[in-house]
Design a protein around this nucleic acid. Sequence first.
DNA 1: CTTTTTGCAAAACCTTTGCACAACC
DNA 2: GGTTGTGCAAAGGTTTTGCAAAAAG
Lengths: 137, 137
Amino acid sequence: MAMKYSRQRAAILSFLQTRKDHPTAELVYSGLKTEFPNISLGTVYRNLNQLAEAGMIAKLQFGDLGIDHFDYDTATHQHFVCNQCNAVIDLPAQSNSYADIDERAAQGFDGKIMGHKLYFCGICRECLLKGACDKVN
Amino acid sequence: MAMKYSRQRAAILSFLQTRKDHPTAELVYSGLKTEFPNISLGTVYRNLNQLAEAGMIAKLQFGDLGIDHFDYDTATHQHFVCNQCNAVIDLPAQSNSYADIDERAAQGFDGKIMGHKLYFCGICRECLLKGACDKVN
DNA sequence: CTTTTTGCAAAACCTTTGCACAACC
DNA sequence: GGTTGTGCAAAGGTTTTGCAAAAAG
């Protein structure tokens, strides 16, 4: 189960590093097609999952989207999903974090709460502007 | 687009009302097989989605599970997913709710935040007890 | 030489959909 | 009678998997 080096995995990781838009496996796949014309989607999925399990990247799952997204930035931060264009956007880090909500939830509950999943929904800036222009025209 | 009465939909709704375990479409389907031997999974999905869009039930989506769950209780409350047995459990209502977190997240963000999705993960009481017994044996 | 990784294709999985017929109002 | 709902089966989209060959150590 030890992880050996592979050119494909290295490329996937460095591709992810260049992107701040939390790409899907499909997007990583097409992004690497030039460098690896024969790379397969299965390989991309296997590596993304492996990297995620190793804690080197984060796997983001949003019920609204139904597609997994991947993030090079594993530091705790919040995500926003645009209901219109489905963009996944980082929210600015809060001084007032969400660290306390696990404890809040644990009150009166007899299981062990080990964490939470949280993301925000709405309309992104681009879609807001586009909507405003549509109204004018 | 008006909603006509259907025996199947009524049965789905009342089935959901009897359950506090947030069943999946598959579970609703098998739960109704006795009353409707010919009901189809497609019908169950169509009705569950229709009821959810009408706001009569809630559709719960957990990235960890990948399967939709449905809840007769549409009042805002939090859910817990057991990482071991995948049970979906209601958390006791908090006096201190999560109403403020949208505003917190909006700070410094130039899109419009309209809501959030949140759930908690961990080990449920049953699995904790089972785990403790396993250690002894 | 052993273990891990790859590419390919097939399968798995959950959910949606097209269609002819039935139920509703 | 027009509209909405049903059952069936087929297709949809995303992700996983079995396998033989290739790469890594």
